[in-house]
């Protein structure tokens, strides 16, 4: 059995997170409501009962149905999925901006170079050395992912010049959206391929793969939340535009409305792109080094159950 990483395109993620015409989209940062005399998953949250079914292995939320069932409980409306079925319940988070998974950066850069092979690229930065400015990991002229995450791209079709600038004057010309606009207008034959390299969707794994636990600390009962669920919640909290509950000011739309200049808005979005990228290890253990890598463990114990787990986990988009 070979293990390889496959980065999902947005279309793949849509396939995983759609069922019978229903889109499984998470919109709430909340997970479970613990205030009642039961555990109630929040609709739209990372344990959404409509998408993932009951949070319990053996019964619906109200307890009327106590075995896997194809039909929803007439009382609480929640289905109890069998384990096999529960493992197929994926969802997605819809981001308000595109981002590039940095594992794809080399391919993206090749594509960028191909598209603009006959174009003169002018770099407009505060200094000559991109590395010194933090825009490249190595090399004074090499554009790193940071350039694409937060710079402005202006294309002049007459002179065939592309100006890449860190000084932002027009938000719509920035980052992946800005490049896409140029490609749409001047290089449309590359648009489909380009879109396959960037994502606006984030795949959410089935709830059964990130179950909550119960624990005691100092005699107090606490709910243990799976770190993957916390990771998803944090993405929704920071990047979602719908969930504006409560008084917190992390909601993307709220923050963006408070920022005054295009430059501020583009930089803040870039910060979130960095969060999504740098946090890949939160989303999968297949990127860990050596002994801590999940693949190593899976190679050691090749059971039927684990085989499915490999298949699912491998297909992480990030």
């Amino acid at each position: 059995m070979g293990i390889s990483l496959e980065l999902l395109t947005d279309e793949d993620i849509l396939d995983y997170s759609r069922e019978a015409g229903e889109d499984h989209v998470l919109t709430s940062k909340s997970d479970l409501n613990l205030k009642y005399d039961n555990i109630r998953p929040i609709v739209g949250g990372c344990y959404d009962p409509v998408i993932f079914g009951s949070p319990f292995a053996d019964r619906c939320i109200c307890g009327k149905i106590r075995q896997p069932s194809k039909s929803p409980c007439p009382n609480c409306g929640v289905r109890v999925y069998s384990k096999e079925e529960a493992l197929r319940r994926f969802a997605r988070i819809e981001l308000p901006f595109y981002y590039l998974n940095d594992l794809r950066f080399d391919i993206f850069k090749q594509k960028f170079d191909t598209i603009f092979k006959d174009t003169k690229i002018i770099l407009n930065f505060s200094g000559d050395d991109l590395k010194r400015l933090g825009y490249s990991a190595r090399g004074a002229k090499k554009m790193g992912i940071k350039v694409f995450d937060m710079c402005q791209f202006d294309y002049n079709p007459d002179t065939k010049e592309l100006t890449v600038s860190e000084f932002i004057t027009d938000e719509s010309k920035c980052s992946y959206e800005g490049i896409m606009k140029i490609i749409e207008e001047y290089f449309p034959e590359h648009l489909t391929e380009y879109k396959k390299l960037i994502n606006r969707y984030y795949l959410v794994l089935p709830a059964v793969m990130r179950p909550f636990t119960l624990t005691y600390r100092d005699g107090k009962k606490l709910m243990g939340t799976h770190k993957l669920s916390i990771w998803y919640s944090s993405i929704i909290w920071l990047c979602c535009v719908e969930d504006k509950k409560g008084a917190d000011k992390l909601n993307y739309e709220t923050v963006m409305e408070s920022l005054k200049t295009p430059g501020e808005r583009v930089r803040y979005t870039a910060l979130l792109r960095a969060y999504l990228n740098a946090g890949k290890k939160e989303a999968t253990e297949l990127l860990n080094t050596s002994k801590e890598n999940l693949a190593r463990e899976l190679y050691a114990v090749r059971t039927k159950q684990n085989f499915w787990y490999v298949k699912v986990t491998n297909r992480l988009s990030t």
Binding site: P55, F56, A57, G63, V208, R210, P211, T213, Q305
Partner: peptide, 9 residues
């Protein structure tokens, strides 16, 4: 947490 440890009711 291993996938098969979803809590029971």
């Amino acid at each position: 947490t291993a996938e098969d440890t979803t809590l029971t009711g």
